[in-house]
Write a protein that binds this DNA or RNA. Structure first.
Lengths: 127, 127
DNA sequence: ATAATACATTCCCATATCGGCATGTGTCAA
DNA sequence: TTGACACATGCCGATATGGGAATGTATTAT
């Protein structure tokens, strides 16, 4: 009968890719593992972090599908699954038309300014 | 001469855009304010959240430059600065060639499979 | 001047997060 | 079998986080 009310302090990091890539180290890992798969030890060597921390970051990335693993003996090779980054890319892309808009406005202003200064040549220290 | 070592639990949400957009509500806000500027009350109406919470999210977004403000009387109009989303777009874009790669591999496999099943027509329940 | 309006800020709480350290767990080597 | 090795997991401490409630601060209306 308890009225448990849920207080979610923050969407769990394991919930989606947006949270996963919010962490700088995890972004480094994704970049490192984009081109080629690597065992954990190698990742540890690249980042300056303890092995357990790296493993924990890898776990987060794996939970949201940003990396995949392949076991070879006692080594575990990780590689980033770029496909899982596409949703982020597409979300940011929805704003592309807006920044283009802004750039156009800036360009137009610049051109206007240029025309104006043509009409009044050498306008020194205008303010 | 204390050896204060910094224990940063998590990169501050105010530090970069990646952290700012990790929060679902903030993503909603950015989408809402992409096309047109709106006063806080209107944002509150769209999201189902208390005004203080919205103000706090707006503060975070403003700190990382994802939104800009314009004051009109006692109202404060917010709009998203799409330009600030570009770095995210570009970061995700660095993985584009990799997911294309993966797609190509998938496609190639599919074509090979198609050729094979042409050579052995109607291979029912192969496994 | 006083009240109402539109936001911002502060405080509190439960929870999430990250890193380091210690401790599993599974695999290969001697 | 006993170690060594490659990782994963658990625990701890310091800190960050988001929401609600209360309060502060301009600005407009009466």
């Amino acid at each position: 009968m308890g009225m448990y009310y849920h207080v979610m302090a923050r969407a769990s990091t394991t919930s989606d890719a947006f949270n996963a890539v919010a962490e700088p180290r995890r972004r480094e890992i994704l970049t490192l593992l984009a081109g080629q798969e690597r065992p954990v030890a190698e990742i540890v060597a690249h980042l300056h972090l303890e092995q357990p921390s790296v493993s924990k970051h890898l776990r987060v990335l794996r939970n949201v599908g940003l990396v995949r693993t392949r076991c070879v003996g006692r080594q575990k090779f990780y590689r980033t699954d770029a496909e899982a980054i596409r949703p982020l890319h597409e979300w940011t892309a929805t704003f592309e038309r807006y920044w283009r808009h802004q750039l156009n406005r800036v360009k137009e202003r610049a051109e206007q300014t240029a025309r104006k200064s043509n009409q009044t040549p050498n306008p020194k220290e205008e303010s």
